[in-house]
């Protein structure tokens, strides 16, 4: 995995996020704060606009009193973390067997054409990133995609159009602009 060093500064955590991090760390015994790492990474990633720069990961290491390498190790293992900047809305289309049987390939192609990007790319206006994901656990309701925390199921081209419009109108929760 390639991590490009960028100019991104550390995010300024909101008071809510700080409190949430402290609450989560307390769920583990004294000295086991490293166990909170994934939750903390999710929280900080949200605060940082949907991705983790090396600088942001260093901040996570400081919060958890661990070495930066311990955060990098984890960040490069788990696929949910974005290590490059992403668009305001990230569409992750499930591509695994059960979804493929009901047409996920068509949805991916439709999105590529509609947004004029390939899987893995972000639109030039910074609005949308298109990704594929392995089985998201919605096999009876496919094709589907995840955007933020939300699942969008039983997708058709029409529903994809509606979703894109809803994003453009700001009705869907997107990544923070930082």
């Amino acid at each position: 995995m390639k991590i490009e060093i960028t100019e991104q500064k550390r995010p300024v955590l909101s008071e809510e996020a700080k409190a949430e991090i402290q609450r989560v760390i307390k769920q583990y015994p004294e000295g086991r704060q490293k166990s909170a790492i994934l939750r903390v990474m999710h929280i900080v990633e949200e605060e940082a606009g949907g991705w983790l720069s090396p600088d942001t990961m260093d901040m996570i290491a400081e919060i958890l009193s661990i070495e930066p390498i311990e955060v990098y190790e984890v960040a490069t293992f788990y696929t949910m973390f974005n290590l490059q900047p992403v668009g305001k809305y990230v569409f992750e289309v499930c591509r695994t067997g059960p979804c493929m049987l009901v047409g996920s390939d068509n949805i991916i192609t439709y999105l590529e054409n509609k947004l004029n990007i390939k899987v893995g790319e972000t639109t030039t206006d910074g609005m949308f990133t298109l990704k594929t994901a392995e089985c998201l656990g919605a096999c009876g309701y496919g094709p589907m995609l995840q955007c933020g925390e939300e699942y969008h199921e039983y997708l058709t081209p029409e529903k994809v159009d509606e979703l894109i419009e809803a994003c453009r109108r700001g009705e869907i929760k997107g990544n923070k602009v930082v």
């Binding site: 958890l64 311990e70 984890v74 788990y78």
Partner: peptide
């Protein structure tokens, strides 16, 4: 506690490793 997107963490010892951060 949430995972981070890794099928392997459904294997019980991988789950434990993951829960150890």
């Amino acid at each position: 506690a949430p995972g981070g997107g890794a099928y392997i963490c459904g294997e019980e010892t991988a789950l434990i490793e993951s829960l150890e951060g």
